[in-house]
């Protein structure tokens, strides 16, 4: 018979309980009129972050921390591009979470949330870690981290930790029910503009684009076999002022080829606003270079 204290499974279990206990102060239960409780993460003193897609129409809420203390929370800002919403509170403790190292596929991870009147804890492993990616709403997310963890809607937005106690980020339900992590570094990046301006501004041209195969005869002119065809130009947008038309095929921006929507997104981050860039397009089978001043993406 193995002594309980020697049993490695008991040791693991005890270690998990200890980790979960240490992480509890990060969990915020967010209540707002008529809605079920939703989860958030006490990111720093007086700031709670949560999953933006869970809060389509919210301004103010009540936040309850794991120790039972409650606070009035005011919406500070939202960013659909990275799926982060930030709330300001008054007088919370400083959670002072540890910084996590790089997420590793196969490593254990704990996802906490507000659930069943208290804190819920889920254990799983990091399913995959990919490079930075861009969302359709224009946000750049520093890593594509997916978890092998099932998550309820009410738990989305809670903290995700490694077993060293480091904060990997906040949980998010992605396409096909995947559970993603919005990495801590991404939260930190968008938090400053969210708290100061309520939003994150990004570059905008005013184009609706469809990836297309460049017809073979034009590939020598284009220098590549794919581009983005302009399906529409927003009225009074930077693209309209630069005289771009539906039917043009965009093949280069600022000297780099745009073979995919993601390749274009890299040129339209927050620091691109106001910048003048050269676009190379194919119009009526002829190459054409136009200059455009990057504008600010309208909200929504």
């Amino acid at each position: 018979m193995t002594d309980t204290a020697e049993n490695p499974l008991m040791k693991l279990s005890d270690a998990l309980v200890e980790r979960a206990q240490l992480a509890r102060p990060l969990v915020a239960a967010i209540a707002a009129g008529g809605h079920r409780m939703r989860s958030g993460t006490l990111w720093r003193k007086d700031v709670v972050v949560a999953s933006e897609q869970r809060f389509p129409d919210l301004v103010d809420a009540r936040v309850t921390l794991a120790d039972g203390s409650t606070f009035t929370a005011r919406l500070a800002g939202r960013d659909p591009g990275t799926n982060i919403v930030a709330f300001r509170l008054d007088g919370t403790p400083d959670p002072n979470p540890q910084t996590a190292g790089e997420a590793q596929p196969g490593a254990f991870a704990l996802a906490l949330g507000a659930g069943d009147g208290g804190v819920s804890v889920r254990l799983g492993i990091v399913r995959s870690v990919g490079p930075a990616w861009h969302s359709r709403a224009g946000g750049q997310i520093d890593r594509r981290i997916t978890l092998d963890i099932a998550l309820g809607r009410e738990e989305e937005g809670g903290p995700v930790l490694d077993l060293g106690g480091g904060l990997l980020g906040i949980s998010t339900l992605g396409p096909r029910g995947r559970v993603l992590v919005i990495p801590a570094s991404t939260v930190d990046t968008v938090l400053e503009p969210l708290l100061s301006k309520g939003r994150v501004d990004r570059g905008w041209l005013g184009l609706a684009l469809q990836p297309v195969l460049v017809p073979e005869a034009l590939q020598p002119e284009a220098g590549r076999d794919r581009g983005l065809m302009i399906m529409g130009v927003a009225k009074d947008s930077p693209a309209a002022q630069a005289n771009l038309h539906a039917g043009d095929i965009l093949v280069m921006i600022a000297g780099e080829s745009v073979t995919s929507p993601a390749a274009l997104a890299k040129h339209l981050g927050p620091d691109s606003i106001g910048r003048q860039v050269e676009l190379r397009v194919l119009r009526a089978d002829k190459p054409l270079v136009l200059s455009v001043t990057v504008g600010t993406r309208p909200p929504g």
Binding site: Q53, P80, G81, N83, W133, H134, S135, R136, A137, G139, R144, T172, G174, P175, Q210, P211, V212, L213, V214, P215, R226, M229, G247, I249, T259, S260, P261, A262, A265
Partner: peptide, 21 residues
Amino acid sequence: QTRGLDPLPEDPQVLLTPREI
């Protein structure tokens, strides 16, 4: 089609020509 958090295609799998569209 309008969910903001969907990833932008890195490498579109099916590419049509302008005429095919």
